[in-house]
Amino acid sequence: MNMMQPFEHAVTEHGPTVLRVVRAVLGPGPDADDAWSETFLAALRAWPDLPEDTNVQAWLVRVAHRKAIDVTRGTARRAVPTDLVPDRPSTTGLPESAEPDLWAAVGALPERQRLSLAYHYLGGLRHTETAELIGGTPEAVRRAAADGIRALRRTYAPEGAPR
């Protein structure tokens, strides 16, 4: 049985998750916006052929991972480091992300921590699934994700500070 649900459901329900993931991977800005758009366009194309029992969020996060790599390759000539927060204007036509400090903290994480955090905490993938995407063992991914979220809490919301 193939997917019969209106595609809009997937956009409404998982659009925010995919945006957080691609922003954590690429930094908030045009590259992340492009990856989000390419993810949902590819998903829209594939939608009618998707088995109905697919875990849609995990599927979208995997598509987003591939699109983020495409975007990174496409912009490699411009030598934009993926672990820095770009300050170019967003193609959404809106002011840069409402949480610049939080994004700076995410951007400051070591790459493995940032990617593990992106795919596990933000994308909801299991550690084993995240390891398949970014390499390494599930245990190493688990540690990196935990270290990443701990560092983020410490940097962004130090103990005792109001959140």
Partner: peptide
């Protein structure tokens, strides 16, 4: 953590991306 991470994408930002889509 959930509160913290939810702030990484806001509804207005998504509205712009939806229009492009």
């Amino acid at each position: 953590d959930s509160d913290l991470l939810h702030r990484l994408a806001t509804p207005t930002e998504l509205a712009g991306l939806h229009r492009l889509l």
